[in-house]
Design a protein around this nucleic acid. Sequence first.
DNA 1: CAACGTTGGCTAAGTGGCTTAGCTTTAAGG
DNA 2: CCTTAAAGCTAAGCCACTTAGCCAACGTTG
Lengths: 191, 191
Amino acid sequence: MPRVGLNQQTVVREAARLADEVGFQQLTLAALASRLGVALPSLYKHVRGADALAQKLAVLATAELATEMTTAAVGRSGGDALRALADAYRDYALRHPGRYPATQRVPDPADPEHVEAGERAVGAIFAVLRGYGLTGDDAVDATRALRSALHGFVTLEAAGGFGLPRDIDRSYHQLVASMDISFRSWPRTGG
Amino acid sequence: MPRVGLNQQTVVREAARLADEVGFQQLTLAALASRLGVALPSLYKHVRGADALAQKLAVLATAELATEMTTAAVGRSGGDALRALADAYRDYALRHPGRYPATQRVPDPADPEHVEAGERAVGAIFAVLRGYGLTGDDAVDATRALRSALHGFVTLEAAGGFGLPRDIDRSYHQLVASMDISFRSWPRTGG
DNA sequence: CAACGTTGGCTAAGTGGCTTAGCTTTAAGG
DNA sequence: CCTTAAAGCTAAGCCACTTAGCCAACGTTG
């Protein structure tokens, strides 16, 4: 029986593709194994198990998302940077419906790559907020606010939580516009 | 063998309690059955299955959340109403960590109780926004924005997504304060 | 109060996930 | 060519959900 020649990277990458097709919750080791042309237990030679796979997928997706946010915002500032970052965020979530939920896993301190990806993602947001003059505690609060708004929106959208016919793109742009207003007049605490 | 005397309501209620203790994802028919003093398949006399239980739990939790938001906002308006509603929202999510995720299930059109609960929840938010003079498309956009912000925040908080030491209560209050500012100067579209 | 039908409980059995143990064979390197 | 690490395999077990079919308790009705 000829070897397929897998390694951790190919396994995780295929898991990402599969997750985008069938959904994060429906990503199963059985489906992944059959997709890769191996028996299910063979995956354990490359990944410690289902949970470890989810964690590695989180690293991949978080790194991708961080890169896309950073790329979108680079060379811009203020509302321009905010809009670019926000669009990149939602684009990623829509283009990668299986990977996006994986990004919500809190970084594993034992995995430097994961920690680094998480820092890059938060750092991209932080950088945009610096363009509004927000630093210290204000920047922390504002980062949390922006993450909450973006994450909440794309999550509700993906879940089909927006029932009414009103155009969703428009609602998102309004949300981002309102965050722009908020950041320009952020309730300062002098952090 | 004496009967335990279950019905759908007792089953769903106990499921809610159990979910709050062990988490929504860890809510299992096996655990629920043993908690109720019954063999697992007996639950099927009261609930169609695991998915149907999740749906009934969604109805319960959505109705509770809607009631708490409505109660909090009644008799208030503007920023006052907003803060009261937002606090009620997060309080519920923190007090009921197992029920809260259930509320995210999109209402089943075939279950009038579910639809009604969902409408009451959205209606509570809508009512608060009317206090800002927001109606029509503006109100739809603003509702989506507020839901996104609140849901995103409590979800990230519950997931442990806020790593930094900065006080989380404070960040939430800042978020709500910034939404207040946004709603007062909402980017109008003339809906 | 007895018979009956409904219903709420049960056991047994099947499916589909994940995981571990232990074997075989490939392929790479001396 | 021989050795060995690694990559695949099968077998088997666990746990979740689900269905089928049986039996006993309870309420109703004659």
